[in-house]
C-alpha cells in the first residue's frame, strides 16, 4: 500500500493527461448528441454577452452614417421595387397562363453580427437571433444585398452560429445564369471557389452571374452568390471547372438576414 502512493504521484501528470485526452475523445465522439448541442448553445449564448456592449459602443459611432446610407439605399430600392412589381405582375400573369405552380414564399429575420470567427477548419459568425426568435437549424442566411452568406449550423435561444460560404466545408448547389447549368460550388485550396464538373459545352464566360439553384431545402432559388472569374481548361475532355468570386464581403458584415 505504501509503495503505490509514490508511483501514483510519479505518474500524476500522465494520469491527468490520459483523463483529459479521454474526455476530449468522448466529446469528439458525442458531437451530435443533444447534450453537446446544448453545451455549445450555452457557450455561444455566453459569448454573445461579451460582444453586446462592444457592438453597442460601435453602433453609437456609426449610426448616423448608417442612417444616411440606408436612406439612399431605401430610395434606390423603392425605385427598383416599383419596377419589380410591374415585372412580377406580368410574370405571375404569364406563369398562370402557362400553368406553373406558385413559388415557395419565405420570411426573413434580421440579425446583427456579433462576431466573426476564422479558423483553419471553419469560417463562421455569431448573430444575435436564436431559436426563440424563430431561427431554425440549417436556415439560409443572406446579407443586406440579398447575397448568399451561409447557413445556420448551431443555435441557442438568443444566438446562432452561421457557417459562411467561404468556409472550406461549405457546399451549395448553384446555377450559372447564362448557360443555366447547375453545379456544386465548393472551396479548394489551390483554386479557391469553384463549380466543378460543368459540361464542356456550357456557355460560361467570366463575369457571368452565379445564383442558387433552389435544389436544396436550405436556400431558395435565385439568391445571388457571385460572378464567374475564370474557366479552367477542359479536363478529361468532357467537363470543365468554373472559378467563382463570391459577392458578399464577409469582412464587413454587420447585419444579416436569416431566411425562414
Amino acid at each position: 500500500m505504501a509503495s503505490t502512493a509514490p508511483s501514483v504521484s510519479r505518474y500524476k501528470s500522465l494520469i491527468n493527461l490520459v483523463t483529459a485526452v479521454g474526455l476530449s475523445l468522448l466529446i469528439i465522439g458525442s458531437n451530435a448528441t443533444p447534450l453537446m448541442v446544448r453545451v455549445r448553445g450555452i457557450v455561444l449564448e455566453s459569448s454573445a454577452y461579451l460582444y453586446v456592449p462592444i457592438k453597442w459602443i460601435e453602433t453609437i459611432f456609426t449610426i448616423e452614417k448608417d442612417y444616411r446610407e440606408l436612406q439612399q439605399r431605401h430610395i434606390k430600392a423603392q425605385i427598383e421595387l416599383n419596377k419589380s412589381r410591374t415585372l412580377l405582375n406580368e410574370n405571375q400573369r404569364l406563369r398562370k397562363m402557362l400553368g406553373f405552380k406558385n413559388e415557395k414564399q419565405f420570411d426573413v429575420i434580421p440579425a446583427n453580427v456579433l462576431s466573426d470567427i476564422g479558423s483553419q477548419t471553419m469560417n463562421s459568425l455569431t448573430v444575435d437571433q436564436g431559436s426563440e426568435d424563430g431561427v431554425t437549424l440549417l436556415s439560409g442566411v443572406v446579407d443586406s444585398q440579398a447575397q448568399l452568406v451561409g447557413k445556420v449550423v448551431a443555435i441557442s435561444p438568443h444566438t446562432a452560429l452561421v457557417q459562411l460560404v467561404n468556409d472550406k466545408n461549405f457546399r451549395v448547389s448553384v446555377r450559372e445564369m447564362r448557360s443555366r447549368d447547375v453545379g456544386i460550388l465548393s472551396y479548394t485550396l489551390k483554386t479557391g471557389y469553384v463549380i466543378q464538373d460543368v459540361p464542356k459545352n456550357a456557355e460560361v464566360i467570366a463575369g457571368d452571374s452565379v445564383l442558387t439553384s433552389g435544389f436544396s431545402d436550405i436556400f431558395p432559388e435565385n439568391i445571388f452568390v457571385g460572378w464567374v472569374s475564370a474557366i479552367s481548361p477542359v479536363v478529361e475532355d468532357y467537363v470543365k471547372t468554373v472559378r467563382v468570386d463570391l459577392a458578399s464581403d464577409f469582412n464587413r458584415l454587420e447585419e444579416v438576414f436569416i431566411l425562414k
Binding site: S13, L14, N16, L17, A20, V21, L23, S24, L25, L26, I27, I28, N31, M36, V39, R40, V43, L44, S47, I117, S119, T121, M122, S124, T126, V153, A154, L161, Q163, N169
Partner: peptide, 24 residues
C-alpha cells in the same frame, strides 16, 4: 473546449485534446 464550441468546428473536442497534450 470553449474554443471548439465558439468556432463551430464539426470535431468539437479536438482543440481540447491538442492543447492538453501540448500542456503535458
Amino acid at each position: 473546449f470553449i474554443s471548439d464550441a465558439l468556432t463551430g468546428t464539426h470535431m468539437m473536442g479536438i482543440t481540447a485534446l491538442a492543447l492538453s497534450t501540448v500542456g503535458y
